[in-house]
Design a binder for these strands. Structure first.
Lengths: 161, 161
DNA sequence: CATATATGTCAACATGGCTGACGTAAACCT
DNA sequence: AGGTTTACGTCAGCCATGTTGACATATATG
C-alpha cells in the first residue's frame, strides 16, 4: 500500500465487505458441486480429498493431512469410503515404504473432473467479468490471508504441472 | 474482459489456483475466531448468527434464514443457545407483529466485536500488503461468484451504515 | 372469515469434525 | 544390532451443525 493512502481504506466497512464476500463467494462456488456430491452419497470432505489427490498424484497420506488440517481419524473415514467405492487407490512408497501414496482410479479421476467442472463454471464467469487485473488482485489478497509459513505448502500445489 | 485477452487466462491452472486460494484464504481468515469461539463453547454457526445480527440490528428471523441458507430448525438451535447465554434478544416486530426482530445484547455486541477483531487483523494485513487496486479486484471477482439474483441481499448488508 | 405467512417446536437422523488409546511396519540413530 | 521415532491404521465414543417431516400458534391479508 502506498504511503499516504486513504486511512478510510481500512475502515470497518471495507473489512466487513471482504469478510462477507469471502463467505458468500466460497459458499456459492461450492454449491453446484455439493448437489452432485449429494446425489452420489458423498460430501464436501470427500471432494476435498479427491481434489487434492487429483492435484498431486502420489501424495503420501501425511501430506494430505497437513493440507486438510484434520485428524488422521477423520481423513481415514473419508479415504476408506473413497477406496471402498473405487475412487482412490494406495501404493506403497518407493523411497519410504512406510508411506502410502494416494492416487485416483480412472473412476475417481472422472468424478473429480466432473466436480471440478461444477466449480470451474462459476470461477470462469467471475474471472471473465472481472478481468485479468482484478483476478490478480484477488489472488494477492487471498494469499495475504494465508500465514506466510503455510504458503509454501499451497504454492507447491501450483508448481510445475 | 477485453476482447482478445489471452486465452491462457482461463486455463485450468488459473481456475485451480483460485479455488485453492479461496479455500485456504477463508479457512485461515476464520481460524482465529474459531479458537475464541471454542473457548466459550460456541461454534462457527453461532458466530455467523452473531455476525449478521450485529450487521443488521432488528433483522427478522426470516431474513437471517435467507442469508444463512439453513433450515429454521438449525437456526433455532443456535439462536436458542445465544439467547440462553444472553447474547441475543428478540422483540416483536412493529410493522408486522408476527416477526421477531433480532438484536444483540450488550454482552453479545461485546463478543461480536471481539470476534470481528480476530478476522479484522488478518484482513487488514492482507489488504494492506495487497494495495487498494488489488482489494478492488478481490471484491469484483468474489461478487462475480455470487449469482446475480442473490447479490441484492448481500449488498443490502453493506448499504447505509 | 378463510387462508397464507412468520415463527417455534418435537423427533429422528447424517455428516464430518474431535479425543484417547493402541497396534504394526519401516526407517533412523548410535 | 537394538532402541527410538515415524507413517499409517483402527476401535470407540463424543460433539457441532446440518437435514427432513410433522405439527402448533399468532398475526396478517384478501
Amino acid at each position: 500500500m502506498p504511503v499516504g493512502a486513504s486511512p478510510l481504506f481500512l475502515r470497518e466497512a471495507e473489512i466487513r465487505r471482504g469478510i462477507e464476500l469471502l463467505y458468500f463467494g466460497y459458499t456459492n462456488m461450492v454449491k453446484g458441486a455439493d448437489v452432485r456430491l449429494a446425489e452420489l452419497g458423498f460430501g464436501r470432505a470427500h471432494h476435498r480429498a479427491l481434489y487434492f489427490i487429483a492435484r498431486r498424484p502420489d501424495m503420501p497420506v501425511g501430506d494430505l493431512l497437513d493440507l486438510l488440517n484434520i485428524t488422521k481419524q477423520s481423513l481415514s473415514r473419508v479415504l476408506g469410503e473413497l477406496q471402498a467405492r473405487g475412487m482412490v487407490a494406495q501404493t506403497v512408497g518407493t523411497r519410504d515404504r512406510r508411506q502410502r501414496m494416494l492416487r485416483l482410479t480412472p473412476a475417481g479421476a472422472t468424478l473429480e473432473t466432473e466436480l471440478f467442472e461444477c466449480l470451474r463454471d462459476g470461477v470462469t464467469r467471475a474471472y471473465g467479468h472481472a478481468g485479468q487485473a482484478a483476478v490478480s488482485g484477488f489472488w494477492t489478497v487471498l494469499t495475504g490471508l494465508i500465514p506466510p509459513g503455510d504458503r509454501p505448502l499451497i504454492e507447491a500445489l501450483q508448481a510445475a504441472e
